[in-house]
Amino acid sequence: MNRSAIDLWVGIFVTIGLGAILFLGLKVGNLLTLDRAPGYRLEASFDNIGGLKVRAPVKAAGVVVGRVESIRLDTKTYEAVVTMRINQDVAFSKDTIASINTSGLLGEVYVGLDAGGDTAVLMNGDRLAKTQSAVVIEKLIGQFLFDKASEGAKK
């Protein structure tokens, strides 16, 4: 094995290795698609965010329009404040409602935006007035049992 043949093989190896990393970044991951897109920030506070996580999608009518950027707890109101980054080319009316949804029973948790009829649009840093918290199954079941029990007591 002479030196130039080794150089050639190592060159091929390094090239396809870096190609594989690029493939993982572009085709498998989302290196270019979302992070680079220009966008603006919106905030929304929820009583309960359920299983929402940072980087979860923000969808309007099922179309991904942004990502959850951060989640923190407002210690004054004890509400969760969710900061979202919305794609620049999508505008939402002032009376848009944010809700926390789950796609399917076991699917991912995302923030849904339902646009209203207001002509004024939300700007960078605005806070959504109306929100709908996550549905927590345990609470629902508890509510259901409580109702049943109180119905029984009335009889």
Partner: peptide, 8 residues
């Protein structure tokens, strides 16, 4: 699904 779920 892969691109939506895997982050670089």
């Amino acid at each position: 699904q892969m691109q939506a779920g895997v982050d670089f």
